[in-house]
Computed example of a mutant assay.
Amino acid sequence: MNTQLLSYYEAIEQASADMLNAARSGNWDEVVKLEGACVLLISQLKHAASRDQLAPEEAKLKTRIMQRILLNDAEIRHLAEPWLEDLDRVMSGKSKMVH
């Protein structure tokens, strides 16, 4: 059993759940911070996966973890849409004031 690889997937899942909780509370600074942690974990996972691979039963668990990560990501994106639209409006307004 390759617990190291699975632990990376689980850590990424936990970070994505934390990102979702931060997004639900409107704490976008925390979302961005956690996103950076995810990028680092994914990089470490890629490196570890180049050396090791999962057994078939572990691959099934990985698939379930990935599905939960994707669901978290979809909800974060949905929650971010109004915030991104507001940011776009603010940036558009600032560029008009500068010119």
Rank of each mutant, 00 (worst) to 15 (best):
L54Y: 08
A55G: 05
R64I: 06
G36L: 01
Q14P: 03
H99F: 07
A55H: 13
D18H: 01
E57F: 04
P82W: 00
N27L: 07
S16R: 01
K33R: 13
E10T: 04
E35C: 00
R51Y: 14
N2V: 01
L71T: 12
Q4P: 06
I76C: 12
H99L: 06
R24V: 10
S50H: 02
L61S: 05
L54I: 07
E85K: 11
M91I: 12
P82E: 02
L20E: 06
I12P: 03
A74H: 15
D86L: 03
E10K: 11
A15I: 04
H47L: 14
N21R: 14
L41H: 02
L20K: 06
S25W: 03
L5V: 03
R89A: 15
L41I: 03
A37T: 09
V39C: 05
S16E: 09
M1Q: 12
T63H: 09
S7I: 00
R77Y: 03
L71G: 03
E57D: 14
S25Q: 15
T63M: 11
R89D: 14
L5K: 02
P82Q: 02
R89V: 13
M91N: 08
E10I: 00
S16P: 05
G93T: 09
V90C: 04
L87T: 12
L41V: 00
L34Q: 07
A22L: 03
P56C: 09
A11W: 00
L34A: 04
G26R: 05
R51P: 08
A49F: 03
D88C: 08
K96N: 12
N21I: 01
L71N: 10
P82L: 00
A17E: 09
L54N: 10
G93M: 02
I69A: 04
Q14V: 03
V98P: 02
L20Y: 01
D52P: 02
A37S: 08
T63E: 15
Y9C: 02
A74C: 05
L6F: 01
W83G: 05
A74D: 13
A15D: 08
R24D: 06
A22F: 02
A23F: 00
L20N: 10
T3G: 09
S43I: 01
